[in-house]
Structures are given as C-alpha cells and as structure tokens.
C-alpha cells in the first residue's frame, strides 16, 4: 500500500459517499445518470467475485463490501425509492449503456492476463469501469448546468483514477515484476475520458461561474 493508492481509495470512497449523501438527504437524483450507476454496480459485482475466496487484508475486504453495498444502494434508491425515483430524468438519461457491456466483455475474452473465469470477469470490470462514466458525461452535456454535488461526484471519480495512475508508476519503480499493462492502459483511457470534464470544471471553479459544459 502506498500513499497514492490509499489517497485514491479514499477519494473513490468519498465520491460514492457524496452521491449517497446527496440522494439520501435531499431525496433527489436530479442530474445523476442511473445507467452509470448500474454500470458501476456491475463493475464491482464482476471485480469482487473473489471477495469470499481470496482474503488479502481486512482493509481490502472492508472496502470491497462498502463499494458493493453503496453502488447497489444507489441503484436501488434511483429505481425503487418512492420519492427519489420521481426525480430521475429517464428521458435525458438515454445512453445505450448495454452497447458498452458487450464490447467490454468480448475485449476481455480476447485481451486478458489469464484465460480463467475470474480473470476474464476481472478484466471485463476494468474495461467497463473505463467507460462507465460515459452516460453520466452525456447527461451532463444534455442538462448543461450541473449542481455542485454532481460536479464533485464526477471530479472525485476522475481524481481517484488519476491517483491510481501515480500508484501504478510508484509500484512499477518499487516492486520488481509489477507489470499490468491491461490495468494501466484501461486506467489511462478512463482518466482521459474525464480530462475534458476536468478542464471545464476547473474553468468554472477558477472564474467562479456555474459549470457549463459545451453542447
């Protein structure tokens, strides 16, 4: 464990908690893409299959449980909570996220580190996580204005993956044989997807104006 990875995990945890907090307190999911949340629940479900088989550390198991419970809770809130569901704008959240699942799965079948079920599911979750934010970014483009909590949510998600890239660089130089090209490239693609959002997020923060994303 290094500081970049710990900071990355904490940032990731913060992003999920910010979202849960928003939905739970103001009982609204306005501006939040259900599709992105469903993709994230699928990412965690397919990545943490080894939750009960491979014990790595208490921290690892605890964090996996938190991510699983929180991501599925968010999906439940938006789909089934009698008040929250009313604020879900399904006419705007129209990204065909199923079109992301299949290519990621096929790619995982072809490009992976080991052709085993667990490894293929793990690789699938990596590819899916890289593109899971797309429905949310499309929704932000559509609804143009975004409220602070949604902006913070996306910002924290992007920041967590950027910190992980620093973690991978650190581990590459400090641990012999630590090479995971698939993880690194997938993580880089994911961070680049956030790059343009970051640009506009910082612009709005610097000029102290409401975040406007160009159409």
């Amino acid at each position: 464990m290094n500081i970049f990875r710990l900071a990355g995990d904490m940032t990731h945890l913060a992003s999920v908690l910010v979202l849960l907090l928003k939905i739970h307190t103001i009982k609204s999911c306005a501006g939040i893409s259900l599709k992105t949340q469903e993709l994230y629940a699928l990412v965690f479900a397919t990545r943490y299959l080894d939750l009960f088989t491979d014990y790595i550390s208490l921290y690892n198991t605890l964090m996996k449980l938190i991510f699983l419970v929180s991501s599925f809770s968010i999906v439940w809130y938006i789909r089934h909570h009698k008040i929250v569901r009313r604020s879900y704008d399904k006419d705007q959240d129209t990204f065909r996220h199923y079109f992301l699942v299949l290519p990621c799965f096929l790619l995982a079948l072809v490009i992976n580190e080991k052709f085993t079920v667990k490894e293929i599911m793990w690789t699938f979750s990596l590819y899916l996580e890289a593109v899971a934010i797309l429905p949310q970014l499309v929704l932000l483009q559509r609804t143009r204005n975004i409220d602070n909590l949604t902006g913070q949510y996306v910002f924290l998600l992007g920041a967590y993956r950027s910190l992980y890239i620093l973690n991978w660089i650190y581990r590459y130089f400090t641990e012999p044989h630590y090479v995971h090209w698939i993880t690194w490239i997938s993580g880089l693609v994911q961070t680049l997807l956030y790059a343009d959002f970051f640009y506009y997020y910082f612009q709005s923060w610097k000029n102290n104006v409401k975040l406007e994303l160009p159409a």
């Binding site: 990731h12 080894d50 790595i56 995971h180």
Partner: peptide, 10 residues
C-alpha cells in the same frame, strides 16, 4: 500452493 492472486488492488 496457489501463488497469491495478482490483483491486490480495489
């Protein structure tokens, strides 16, 4: 004894 699973990250 199975070598530790390569993926120790979240």
């Amino acid at each position: 004894e199975e070598q530790p699973q390569g993926h120790d990250e979240l």
